[in-house]
Design a protein around this nucleic acid. Sequence first.
DNA 1: TGTTGTTGGATACCTTCGCTATCCATGTTA
DNA 2: TAACATGGATAGCGAAGGTATCCAACAACA
Lengths: 206, 206
Amino acid sequence: MRMSDLSRRSGVSVTTIKYYLREGLLPAGRQLSATQAEYDEQHLRRLRLIRALIGVRGLSVSTTRDVLRALDEHAGDTHILLGLALGSIRIVEEPEEGTPEPAEVGALIKELGWQVHQSAPARAALAETLTSLRTLGTPLEWRTLLPYARLAEQTAAVDLDQLDWIDDPLEVAERALLLTVLLEPALLALRRMAQENESARRHAED
Amino acid sequence: MRMSDLSRRSGVSVTTIKYYLREGLLPAGRQLSATQAEYDEQHLRRLRLIRALIGVRGLSVSTTRDVLRALDEHAGDTHILLGLALGSIRIVEEPEEGTPEPAEVGALIKELGWQVHQSAPARAALAETLTSLRTLGTPLEWRTLLPYARLAEQTAAVDLDQLDWIDDPLEVAERALLLTVLLEPALLALRRMAQENESARRHAED
DNA sequence: TGTTGTTGGATACCTTCGCTATCCATGTTA
DNA sequence: TAACATGGATAGCGAAGGTATCCAACAACA
């Protein structure tokens, strides 16, 4: 498959493909000669994945590169993949080094009895939200998050259940990535709809 | 309060405040003379809210403007606020007019028995995720989303519970905004941590 | 054996976004 | 009155994510 075929089948322009190659998102094709390279189905698949991460989820190019690299390096080990590859995604851009993690985050995790790596970016993301709410004058008691956390636990169980019946390690890794990252906008959308519905329900009761 | 005081107390530079005024995110102060304006606590509060929406949640300036306008217009009515003001937030940028909503989204909502407005952007967001997964060759059965939706229902109930005991309508509106929008990164962070924990737990069992 | 068109690779450029810096006339304040 | 601050307008900047152009090497057909 030539680059132009790759472009046609993926719907991504040749120049953009070249850009992704340059940025290291897409591995180079097999060089046939000085000005000829061959691409295969793997490249096509990878390219579609890139578009989904950047376009649907809105990841930055550099974050996408980190995620894909982690995916390649730890394809076989779902645990490492989830903890490390997905850990490289910053939900909040710039971890805001200046903000020390409030004790609340540690307290919450301890209360939940969770094992969460100390350097997990999710800790920083949570910390920043709490700090921000406090600055706004509407602080959130960390205990308020407990019911949310229990629901997150159940969500995570559903997530991992879906990986159980898959055999191919590479497929497990890719599926895990899609389920965690690409599903995020969908989960938020479900929450929005549920809020609308619940709000309507409560109003109707009055 | 002068603009410089507003700057000092909010930590936002004067030039940036001017930018927000220009962009219509922040209402103008009370004009004292041709080159003098007075700002109050409301402005400070609003400014902090703007920073939180843009900085923490990563909303674009124009989206933030839409959200704040909706907040002002329907401050008293939580139902309208959630359905309309929050509806104006695009989880996925560019609703992708070209993609018609798959029948699956309608089927899911019907199965759930939810009342969701036909034009809710959350529908489009969900639709795009499903379309994207199908393009990637790993389609998601809509029934797979049912457990997630039931969890979203419970989350929404927790959300609305927290608004019950607040009296001031303006405060309800602002709190609703914070709980839905600003809490989103926190909820995703909880899910990430729960996944890490659940993955560790399952591996330990082997 | 041309000659025409395509390919990969490099480089420069473009557009949008979110600020930021500079100007300047008008005010305030010491 | 002199020095400095303020509000408002305009222009510019830096990063991000592409896009357009150029060019030498090559393939493939006549």
